[in-house]
Deep mutational scan, measured.
Amino acid sequence: EPLWIRPDAPSRCTWQLGRPASESPHHHTAPAKSPKILPDILKKIGDTPMVRINKIGKKFGLKCELLAKCEFFNAGGSVKDRISLRMIEDAERDGTLKPGDTIIEPTSGNTGIGLALAAAVRGYRCIIVMPEKMSSEKVDVLRALGAEIVRTPTNARFDSPESHVGVAWRLKNEIPNSHILDQYRNASNPLAHYDTTADEILQQCDGKLDMLVASVGTGGTITGIARKLKEKCPGCRIIGVDPEGSILAEPEELNQTEQTTYEVEGIGYDFIPTVLDRTVVDKWFKSNDEEAFTFARMLIAQEGLLCGGSAGSTVAVAVKAAQELQEGQRCVVILPDSVRNYMTKFLSDRWMLQKGFLKEEDLTEKKPWWWHLRVQELGLSAPLTVLPTITCGHTIEILREKGFDQAPVVDEAGVILGMVTLGNMLSSLLAGKVQPSDQVGKVIYKQFKQIRLTDTLGRLSHILEMDHFALVVHEQIQYHSTGKSSQRQMVFGVVTAIDLLNFVAAQERDQK
């Protein structure tokens, strides 16, 4: 057995438009009618409502009807409940999964919650491996369901041993009777949507819809739904939504950006999952974080739909894509998950301010006199920076000697690579993860907040409520011999709460 199987392995699926269902090699399930009293909570997966979006479509000038398939009504709160249950049931049916076995899954959280929910009911041990950027709410729900959680670096490539995929496979090879159901490759993922989600949409719309818009992560949702719609409703256009920084969209030119990270969760990847059939997507749109969270908040405030950030991405694209539809036509959007997962993220004004998705003037509360002053007023001194090749031991000596707790790590040209902190280095040394002679590049981390000289002290204040420091950066445009230009970030300084307090105190003292 291989040590790991690539999540982007070539698909062996034989589905073709027009091929009889009787030739399918898979076990198919028909939607079942729910009894009045459910035998367990797993029976509350599927049969989610279709809700008309009344205000947002009109606000953006849509002539067509805009409908939302509300997947956050599933038992675990997301569309991923469907595939989690289906993968477990299919693994039980073919004898792969037996009582007492362990389920391991690399996930952005929602599939993990679905699997942990099913594992709690069915009696399996469950280990979820997820990147650090995923919300604390997801972690809390997983723990409450009895799952064990392993976190991995957000910026690790999918084929790196440190990625959530790599760590999951390492655990599988170490733990007896453990299984990775593997949402990236498992046919049960798109089949769950082909058999149930798509049929529900067709039934709820009486077979009449002209466009379907869905955000894409593993691709199982859009693949399964689109294949069924292509068979039953061939005139329906399928629109895929991919965040900026991901590479799922086609044509490839759409993916060209210097951005590699994004805040919206559960969609987009740096590889093409095996289950994603991009041939059934008629057109791709890219979405960005700001519009995703703005539209998610709009869905909550104006439509009462308590959905997550990827739902915002989907609707932001839908109001663009559906401009081509006329009166009497219908566009369906998939709202994948609930706001429950993001209470401390985009639902929080403070978080939105820190990330730059909300401006101070958007909030009406009274601010102190210094709130709208610029960061450049602080008069920061030149920063202490270190090269990635310097040793951890030497870096600790320098920081202690100069009285700093942290320093930016830059390359020879001064471009920011990340940050090192005294606390992080000492804990890594004590844990045996690094040696004093190791290069400081081994303990770089990139989960820090950046701020510009033109940003306000109010925004800085919000950042420092949650973080010990902020890195002050400025952009530099560099022209190359080819005539092309590129933008790079340079370090201007490091600012802490002490710097802000000293500035405010000094100004008030001078005024007296």
Rank of each mutant, 00 (worst) to 15 (best):
Q478L: 13
L399H: 01
V332R: 03
C331G: 08
T364L: 08
L387S: 11
K484L: 13
K449P: 04
T279S: 09
F469G: 11
L501I: 09
M419D: 10
A292P: 03
T496F: 12
V443E: 15
L325Q: 11
L384E: 11
W351Q: 03
P243C: 01
K359E: 14
D289S: 01
L335P: 01
M298T: 15
I477L: 14
G379D: 13
L471C: 15
V281P: 10
E263L: 08
L347V: 01
V280I: 04
R452K: 01
L429E: 01
R459G: 09
K449D: 10
H462F: 12
E291M: 15
Q439V: 10
G441D: 13
M343L: 07
K367G: 11
E258L: 09
N341C: 03
S461I: 01
K449M: 09
D242I: 01
F469A: 13
V440E: 04
V473W: 08
A249E: 07
F346P: 01
I416F: 07
L347R: 03
S437R: 11
A407F: 10
L363V: 08
W351T: 01
K433Y: 08
T344M: 07
V410R: 12
S381P: 13
I272C: 10
G432Q: 01
T454H: 14
E303W: 04
Y262D: 03
P436V: 12
Q329F: 08
E465N: 15
V317I: 11
Y342W: 01
N424F: 15
V410Y: 13
K446S: 12
T482G: 04
G308V: 01
G393C: 13
E465T: 01
L335T: 01
D362V: 14
M343A: 03
L353S: 08
A506S: 14
E365I: 14
E252F: 06
E291C: 14
L325G: 06
F271Y: 07
Q489C: 15
S287L: 12
K320T: 14
V415W: 11
I463A: 01
V410D: 08
A311E: 01
G493I: 10
V440G: 09
T274Y: 03
E303L: 08
S428K: 01
L417Y: 09
A413V: 12
I267V: 10
T314Y: 05
R374V: 07
V420L: 13
L471T: 12
F503D: 04
E508G: 14
V472G: 15
K449I: 06
T389H: 13
I239D: 04
K320A: 09
Q439E: 07
H468I: 13
K442W: 10
V472L: 14
I463S: 08
R330H: 13
L429G: 10
L358Y: 05
E258K: 14
T274P: 05
M466R: 09
L254D: 01
Q450I: 14
D499V: 01
W351F: 01
E361Y: 10
A470M: 15
G393H: 15
G493C: 14
D289K: 04
F271C: 01
G483L: 09
V281W: 01
Q329P: 01
K442C: 12
L417T: 15
G423W: 14
C392P: 08
G308E: 01
V409G: 08
G312R: 06
N341M: 04
H394F: 11
G308A: 04
V494Y: 01
E360S: 11
R488H: 14
E475C: 13
T260M: 15
H474P: 05
R350F: 04
L429Y: 09
A322P: 01
K442P: 12
I247C: 04
T279L: 11
V333Y: 06
H474C: 15
L471N: 13
E361V: 10
